[in-house]
Design a protein around this nucleic acid. Structure first.
Lengths: 205, 205
DNA sequence: CCACCATTGTAAATGGTGCTTACATCGTTC
DNA sequence: GAACGATGTAAGCACCATTTACAATGGTGG
């Protein structure tokens, strides 16, 4: 879990300027989302966590939604990076597709805070084009793989949409705990790999 | 579309007792969710819509989350009914599976308000066992179909989880507008049917 | 070196929210 | 027809988002 050195989360007591309040606020918000769910976050509380006054955030974000939107965008970018990294690790195209899906599932589990801001915060995406753009970039990776994998653009699109829906659905259900087997035992991500492999090995034509 | 006659949504002006405040509040909340997103709902506003004071709801629901939870449970039950209804319409097992998926997608689109309360409201499901129960019942329908379709319980479970994830993901992406084709044209649900058919026709063994 | 000033932070206030408590009214039952 | 449970109201608390007016900071041009 690479966490960029030891960042300043709280402002030092005697200081006036924080140094990197914008980043701190996003981290504080993410922590609140992690601890109290996607709705359990408030600007005021994030301010307190960062050790500044409640008005300070408004020097960096137009409003609460703008803060959330920026976190969402960060999330999409992080997701895309992680997918690309996973894809680069293997040579075989089939494996690349499987790994991109596994990366999606890992992201949803390891960065559940980002994931819930991205998909469960009820943000009005149409108001933040940069989110749309980042999301589309990420999806582009999947589309690219599908295009290499399928013969026609139509089949590629079908494959890409199906793949995205499958991993997105798995990720969502996993986060809701709906995938834990009857006994309540949680599932390893590796246990989901066969689902992806089956999907990839299904011929489209 | 079936809306139980013409229900009393607002209390009549001169009356003191409402008659069915509980139902009215849930309907008001759903309307607010539909109009202003999953976060744009407040108990106070729902009260106003129902024509009562802001404290009145607390005679019927322990708190805001309890109201949301009951709506979610209603949603799971409605979803289950609609899936069962669709399944009954066709005889062939393969078609039943496809139709159950289509019913899920229809539900997500036609009852986007319920769907978002069920999956995007950030409700703490572990606090409301009745939600878990209703959700599990609905999933039971899918599992049942899968058990008829596959030879072993293991394959059936794999099939059921995959099916659920696929339609759940499609529904979620559809609601986010992520499925609209490049031109921004929205997709007919029937256009998604081939995805489900492909899935069903894939041999598991 | 230092006075300026954009940047970043603070304090206080506004209007709104969820929720609780104390009290008022209804209408059914005995 | 009175008592009582069901139901509704009014008022108040704590919290929140946001704005405004002001203050501290530190980099920059003179």
């Amino acid at each position: 879990m690479p966490v960029k050195k030891a960042k300043v989360l709280r402002k030092a007591k005697g200081e006036y300027h924080h140094g990197d309040l914008k980043t701190s606020l996003k981290q504080a918000a993410l922590r609140l989302v992690r601890d109290r769910g996607p709705r359990g976050f408030s600007v005021n509380e994030a301010s307190r966590l960062a050790g500044v006054s409640v008005a300070a955030p408004y020097r960096h974000f137009h409003d609460k939604d703008a803060l959330l939107a920026e976190i969402a965008r960060d999330g999409y970018e992080l997701l895309e990076r992680e997918i690309r990294k996973s894809v680069e690790k293997v040579g075989n195209l089939r494996e690349q597709i499987v790994e991109s899906g596994m990366a999606y599932l890992r992201f949803a589990r390891n960065h559940a805070d980002y994931f819930s801001v991205m998909f469960q915060s009820g943000l009005d995406r149409s108001k933040y084009p940069e989110i749309e753009r980042s999301a589309r970039n990420g999806f582009g990776v999947i589309v690219g793989l599908a295009q290499q994998y399928e013969r026609t653009p139509e089949l590629a699109e079908l494959r890409a949409v199906s793949a995205w829906a499958l991993v997105h659905g798995l990720a969502g259900l996993d986060q809701d705990g709906a995938l834990s087997s009857a006994a309540g035992k949680s599932r390893t991500l590796e246990q989901l790999r066969p689902i992806l492999e089956r999907f990839v090995d299904q011929p489209y034509n």
